[in-house]
Write a protein that binds this DNA or RNA. Sequence first.
DNA 1: CGGAAATTTTGCAGCCTATGCATTTTTCAG
DNA 2: CTGAAAAATGCATAGGCTGCAAAATTTCCG
Lengths: 204, 204
Amino acid sequence: MTEPTGLRERKKAATKAALSEAALHLAVAKGGLDVVTADEIAAHAGVSTRTFHNYFTSKEAALLYDFHEITSKLLADLRERAQHQPIWDALRDAAIAMHFDERFDIEMMRCREQLVHASPALIKEQSGQFMELFAEAIDIVAASTGSGPDDLHPRLLLGGALVTIKSCTEHWLADPTGRDLAAVITEGFAVFERGITQPLPSGV
Amino acid sequence: MTEPTGLRERKKAATKAALSEAALHLAVAKGGLDVVTADEIAAHAGVSTRTFHNYFTSKEAALLYDFHEITSKLLADLRERAQHQPIWDALRDAAIAMHFDERFDIEMMRCREQLVHASPALIKEQSGQFMELFAEAIDIVAASTGSGPDDLHPRLLLGGALVTIKSCTEHWLADPTGRDLAAVITEGFAVFERGITQPLPSGV
DNA sequence: CGGAAATTTTGCAGCCTATGCATTTTTCAG
DNA sequence: CTGAAAAATGCATAGGCTGCAAAATTTCCG
């Protein structure tokens, strides 16, 4: 362990993970998060309803918990890379390095993707988290290009990168048997580098 | 009137507009939509609370009503243009033509922008509407490029276009005294055409 | 160990959102 | 004017979310 995380911290992390898992499992079982109540999630994780709301502000946030974790790490990684790389390279490399973390269950991702796709509330939550990521990262990008916080170019850079991440992930999840995610993301970034209206140089 | 819109339709449209305006005014007055209740909005518009919920599913949707209107028109315009233009040109031209509608109060837009920026619920609603727009437009784009609904390139095209629209609007709203919005959007699209890492050819 | 302090969990009350259903009111057409 | 269609309303209900204070738990230190 890099940090001597107190024993208490571990229990909290465990509960949070349990709640998130419970939300996912119940949503899959019932075919939608909308028909799952906070009570059920809490009960399934062995805590009180009130405690559930101490950990998450909504069912949707609970279901998307590790998505949020991933973006947090991405942000930290970007912040690091931005000190040594041109910002677009930093964005690209951070996106490519993303995901290849500890546990990573493709099937679970597909389940979540399906649930999100079918639920307006989950779509809002997820896109909202992207906006939050944008807001947190825009300062890094702007600083890296020597621009002001309201300038256009850093917004386009960051927006293009986030669109690439989301689009590539969705495309890849639709058929994960082909190229791996990193390759897809690499191609996505290449499209924006080359000019989005330019044809690809060679066959895939 | 292009359509002989029944007199009844007009009243409905009027109430809907009144509710939306009420939401905006109250939110501005109180410094946030969170502290405005549906009751207040309904009362301010002279209808019952229940009626408010007949028109809008949430306070947030009410406040963003004409944003939603604009994207609806954009979608219709895109659908039209896609039949006669390459899809990227259709996206660009539809984006440029956007906005220049009937009434258009810049100050009101800035107010809304500020409110959205400060409220997680409004951010979620707005980004959710963008996702909805994406979902509705992706078929048009995919069809236009002869791709499948899960292909990568149409997603990048559409995503890039939407990012441009949102980024340019925000950039422009931060200082509306400079170039007009259409010029900013034109530049945004040009960046993606040229390749996002390429330097600009000449000064601004 | 033992107990004080800090932290977490929990129950409870309250406010608000949002929806279904039945009823009343308004609007429209003939 | 009158019946039919549509909209507005009231009422009831389920559920989400938050503040607050009490209870339970964990940690720390003598």
